[in-house]
Design a protein around this nucleic acid. Structure first.
Lengths: 194, 194
DNA sequence: ACCGGAGTATACCGATCGGTCTACTATCGT
DNA sequence: ACGATAGTAGACCGATCGGTATACTCCGGT
């Protein structure tokens, strides 16, 4: 016999911890949620957490990294459906619109996390990676549109993206991403992006 | 003799607590900073805090309320210097630009606070007041410009404002407010605002 | 002269924090 | 049959959390 499929049903303690961290940290905040709440939700022993991650800080980093990677793969799949750079840019806002429609959407996890950090926190670097990824993606797309000043357009589109995340989070405004999408069209037109 | 001016030199415990809260809560976060740190910074006894505010929660609310009122008076003075609604709108972004230039700028205090709140927190309402004030202000101004769809323009301007706050905070991007100002011009033009 | 309000310092409370440690168990491949 | 691996429960640690209580001092108004 080959490897038994039954093994797949067993979810490792690490994965259950990560799943619990996703829910709790995102919904209630990083500082608010203690270790004990996480292991209770995961149904896992405390020692397992420290075997798998070593510290709460590393768990937080793993939580945010997983969040980033999920977004990358989700966005990659979505971008592949479009040909023109303009449509690809708009699909970024479509992605946010769909996310914000989910119950329990609480805005960008990285913005939320950043607001809780003391300065010089090691978690900050994970946030930076995620932000730079989006900035770079939009940078390439705006350049491909033939916009007059792609760097300026990129900065403005990032503002819209961040702003929509904040508005969704603070006002429960599910239409924020749609407003951002409309504004993006105006700004692309103003920059002569095709 | 009338009331002695010497009395003015005495700063009440309440005021010193509020000043300490301003620094610590804004720089390091609401949940991160404990009561003991606040009273130590204020140079005040613990009982004075609970005499003046009753709870940490009330201190937080007072901190944010003071922050809001400071912004209102600052913005009111600035708006009075301009005549056209278009210039008034741009002055909102000028205000942010000046703030972001200050060392130690950490973004919008309300966005930061909101990211730390558990749901149904009494602090949330203070954030809402501040956000509604800005939204209402921009709403009146956009209407006065004669823009085609002032409600839509308002939503988009708020996005830019929030986005600039996030970018300033997370990327240390001191030029974010300037980018937002430029984008605001494009969006006002697109809406036919004079 | 005296009283009350404001402020002080400090001890204390139960709860929770992040983290360590011991001792035990179930399952695996060899 | 065996050791390695991954996991379990739970006691324990010092520190800190928000908050309360006690007892004292200082000062201004009547």
């Amino acid at each position: 016999m080959n490897t038994k499929p039954i093994v797949l049903e067993k979810i490792s303690a690490r994965e259950r911890l990560l799943a619990a961290a996703q829910e709790l940290f995102y919904e209630e905040g990083i500082n608010t949620v203690g270790i004990d709440r996480v292991i209770e939700r995961a149904g896992v022993a405390k020692a397992s957490l420290y075997n798998a991650f070593g510290s709460k800080d590393e768990l937080i980093r793993a939580y945010l990294t997983a969040r980033h990677e999920a977004r990358v793969s989700r966005m990659t799949a979505r971008l592949a459906k479009h040909d023109s750079p303009r449509d690809k840019i708009l699909s970024v806002f479509d992605d946010m619109r769909e996310n914000a429609a989910n119950a329990g959407y609480r805005g960008c996890a990285f913005v939320r996390a950043n607001a809780e950090l003391r300065s010089e926190d090691s978690v900050k670097s994970v946030c930076d990676v995620s932000r730079e990824w989006l900035r770079s993606l939009l940078g390439q797309l705006t350049a491909a549109t033939g916009a007059r000043d792609p760097a300026s357009l990129t900065r403005q589109l990032v503002l819209l993206y961040d702003g929509a995340a904040v508005s969704s989070q603070m006002d429960g405004n599910t239409g924020a991403a749609q407003s951002a999408r409309e504004a993006a069209i105006s700004l692309m037109d103003a920059h002569g992006a095709t």
